[in-house]
Design a protein around this nucleic acid. Structure first.
Lengths: 344, 344
DNA sequence: CCATCAGATGGGAGCGCTCCCATATCGCTC
DNA sequence: GAGCGATATGGGAGCGCTCCCATCTGATGG
């Protein structure tokens, strides 16, 4: 059998086998497979039939070798892996990205980077050009990972930004307005001793949320009292601790804005232990609208970030950038929304 | 310059360039790169230096073309994407898998399959042999995805199983003992009208947890009353609804075992609305020990599944299977643990 | 001192594909 | 009816690597 010669050892048919079966040349089959123009209807039909009969599937490695495209993008999550699980934020991003690329034929690679070793591995990975583009979430101001990406020259889109001068493309949510609206809400409720628990200040989002807090206070002609500001790192236990500090410093506080729901949950716990009623004694607003916000007691008023939409937008931006690499960098700011439940 | 000829258009050095620089042949460089034996120390050193100087990184596509390995595995999550976000279980699995493969040079591909279209895409993907092996979580009894995997002949490891006759390798948690321990705990508390809310019965885990419930009752010489059994689908709202049914059918129930924390959270909400105190009137135990279990009011007693360890075990099993494909299928059952908080 | 053998080495062949160019084919126009 | 451009087509070259075999080297034994 002459077709034998065009088959793989593992039995999978090659382009050549399809060409032989359809009675055309390799070039024509390739054109059909890749949807290029300039194929007669007759030839196209013959090829399509041969493909169906043989169950032909292109060998991506061979294609990639020639085109030096990989048809894959990577989503990099540079977090201690614990946060991945505790923050549904990441899962939503994944979901958004996956749904956006689900009708391209791109692969999604997930890369978790937490240790130094993993960072080095990532460097080799990027140098090896194993993906066509990269998505990075959870951006820290001087995160070496971002620099790796910049150096690599690969199309890149960030979720969040390092500063308001961020040169790379990014998608961010409107942290300023979100925080502002949250604090504004507390003030509208008549609270006057409004504290805040910030995120880690090496993340721009934390700084911006703090700025939103400040601005709302100033607009209400209230002084910004440093004693009412405590810092956390987005984890629940840091929220617990920060709340304890605040309570110690300012026993008379009557409201608190937390830069994440997880910290807010921790803060609630501390408040409860201290015998403060929520919201009667202390009103509380979180940030993220993560699932746990609905499960706290009382259910938490919080600022919704459209995290799935962020993932989607990131993917979209990256696809554009891969398609037209020269295109200058773009940014997208998605709006946030106050979700009023019972904690404030 | 003669080295020019051995460089890629994009400037990345090739094996050939390294060979030229080190003054050896391609074969020797390849042997060094792949750590094969039979290279003199002198040659090895020269090659290593050339690699460092040139910043050589192997082209995976070319390698893959020859070896027909891909150095990638896929994690398939066949769920409506919503569950990905709401169930930290998946995130933990991802984390476990990622950490287990982090010192191999395998890639992790994440594939979310929910629609029929995505399933077809997956089929092509598997046929295209774009990964060396596959991990599947959230296994449903007659999930077409599992059949796809079986047909593909790729090394496969399931998280969960279709039945106790599962022919494929799998990692599961000890659902029977977990459920049994939960119900046993409720009985030890003196409860006698113990209800259960099951998961979707097309998942083996649901059936087994129900069996654990039954067995604990029988051991306590209590009848298994169908009126005390309601069905959910692991979502919060299904828990809410199932609890309402139970309350309607058996107003006198004094305990409930829920097959997931999410359903338990829903059930709590219904109980609260119905004016039942937890645990005074109705004691409640969940399953999973997901983060929300700590945030309910009162904090939930639940059965811990070692989900991260499951991910790790799945990856380990898959690696073994890829290394030694002939090896017969294996299964690992991880033990569960009752975490007593305040709801029971 | 030469035959012998193990270990080290170089490089041809070929993996399956895309790119591109030479060639073939067709339908028009003048 | 010859000439021309537009459209289709086949297949060579080559992507960067691994595999394998032929060759070479040097140490060993008779």
């Amino acid at each position: 059998m002459s077709t034998r010669s065009a088959e793989r050892g593992d039995g999978r048919p090659t382009l050549e086998a399809v060409a032989a079966r359809a009675g055309v040349g390799r070039g024509t089959v390739s054109r059909v497979v890749n949807g290029s123009a300039g194929v007669s209807p007759r030839a196209r039909k013959a090829v399509e039939q041969a493909i169906a009969e043989l169950g032909y599937v292109p060998n991506l490695a061979a294609r990639s070798l020639v085109t030096s495209r990989t048809d894959a993008i990577a989503l990099i999550v540079p977090e201690t892996e614990t946060r991945l699980a505790s923050e549904p934020f990441f899962a939503s991003i994944i979901r958004g990205v996956a749904s956006e690329i689900s009708d391209t034929d791109l692969q999604l690679l997930l890369i978790l980077v937490s240790t130094e070793r993993e960072r080095r591995r990532l460097a080799g990975f990027l140098d090896g050009r194993r993906v066509d583009g990269v998505l990075l979430v959870s951006v820290h101001t001087d995160d070496p990972v971002v620099e790796l990406l910049e150096q690599s020259g690969l199309p890149t889109v960030l979720g969040g930004r390092r500063s308001d001068l961020e040169p790379l493309s990014y998608v961010d949510s409107d942290n300023l307005r979100g925080a502002w609206a949250a604090v504004r809400h507390l003030l509208d409720l008549g609270r006057r001793r409004v504290a805040t628990i910030t995120g880690p200040l090496d993340m721009e989002a934390s700084g911006v949320r703090l700025e939103g807090y400040r601005r709302a206070l100033r607009e209400a002609e209230l002084a910004v009292d440093p004693g009412l500001i405590a810092h956390g790192d987005f984890t629940e236990s840091s929220g617990e601790q920060a709340m304890a500090e605040l309570l110690a410093r300012e026993p008379a506080l009557d409201a608190v804005f937390c830069a994440s729901d997880l910290m807010a949950a921790g803060a609630m716990r501390t408040l409860r232990r201290a015998g403060r009623r929520i919201p009667a004694d202390v009103a509380l607003v979180g940030f993220d609208d993560s699932p746990i916000a609905r499960h706290t007691e009382p259910p938490m008023t919080t600022v919704r970030q459209p995290s799935e939409e962020m993932g989607r937008a990131m993917a979209r931006l990256l696809l554009e950038q891969i398609a037209a690499p020269s295109r200058s960098h773009r940014q997208i700011i998605l709006s946030t929304e106050l979700v009023v439940r019972e904690s404030a």
